[in-house]
Simulated assay, not measured.
Amino acid sequence: MMMMKKSIATLVALFAVMTVSAQQPDTLRFMNDYRQFVGFVTTKPALTKPVADSLIARQDALRRQYRKVKPMLTNAQVEEYNRLKGRYTKKMLEYRGNRVGDGLSATGDSIAKTTGRVGSAVGGFFKGLFNK
């Protein structure tokens, strides 16, 4: 009876060690994948809409994966993930800012062209507002 309890305890301990060791490669693989993803995103000089859309989809998939592996990550890995996520977010904000700036510039050009046909008071306001 004592031998049976000891062997059961050994099996439980072995199972726990195997579970931890099986989970660890998942966390390492996730962190390596995320490092590579953020490295790729941050080295792109400029993003186009189709590329940005695919990067956003990939980030969403990685975020879902992060939620699954987060309980198994060390504090250092969580800190690194958040740092990498910040770098990704910064790049995407730059992209979105450029798109908004380009859109405002195009809108300003369009308004400046059409204001010549509108009354001089309104036209002068928009020309002053959007003039380069």
Rank of each mutant, 00 (worst) to 15 (best):
G101D: 07
G116N: 05
R58M: 12
A16Y: 08
G86R: 02
K90H: 10
Q24T: 12
R35E: 08
N131H: 06
G97R: 02
L14Q: 13
A16K: 09
K6W: 00
V12E: 06
R63K: 14
V51E: 12
R63C: 06
P71H: 01
K113N: 11
Y81M: 06
G124R: 01
M1W: 07
D53E: 12
S105W: 05
A121K: 06
N131C: 03
G86D: 03
R64H: 14
L84G: 01
Y66P: 00
N98A: 14
D109H: 07
N98P: 02
K5Q: 15
G116D: 04
Q65M: 12
L28S: 06
R67H: 15
N75T: 12
E79S: 15
I111C: 03
P71G: 01
K6R: 06
L104Q: 08
T27S: 11
V17L: 12
Q77H: 12
V118T: 05
L55M: 11
P45S: 02
T27L: 07
S105F: 06
K5G: 13
P50K: 00
K70H: 15
A112N: 09
I8A: 09
E94T: 12
T19K: 10
V100N: 04
D109M: 04
K5C: 10
G101Y: 09
Q23I: 08
V122E: 03
Y34R: 00
R58T: 13
V38Q: 04
T48F: 14
G101N: 10
D33F: 04
G39A: 02
T42N: 09
S54C: 10
K44G: 01
K68Y: 15
Q36F: 05
G124C: 01
S54Y: 10
S110R: 08
D60P: 04
R96V: 00
K113Y: 08
G103Q: 01
T48Q: 10
P71F: 02
V17K: 08
F130K: 02
V118E: 02
V78Q: 13
V69N: 08
T10G: 09
A106H: 13
M18Q: 05
D109G: 03
Y81P: 15
A13E: 09
V38Y: 05
I111G: 03
S120M: 08
F30D: 05
P45W: 01
M31F: 07
F126E: 01
A112Q: 00
K5F: 13
K90D: 15
A13M: 04
K132E: 07
A22V: 13
D102Y: 13
G108I: 01
A112F: 00
N75H: 06
V38I: 07
R64C: 08
Q23F: 03
M31E: 04
L73S: 14
R83W: 08
M31T: 11
F126H: 00
S105M: 05
D33W: 01
A57M: 11
T107D: 00
K90A: 15
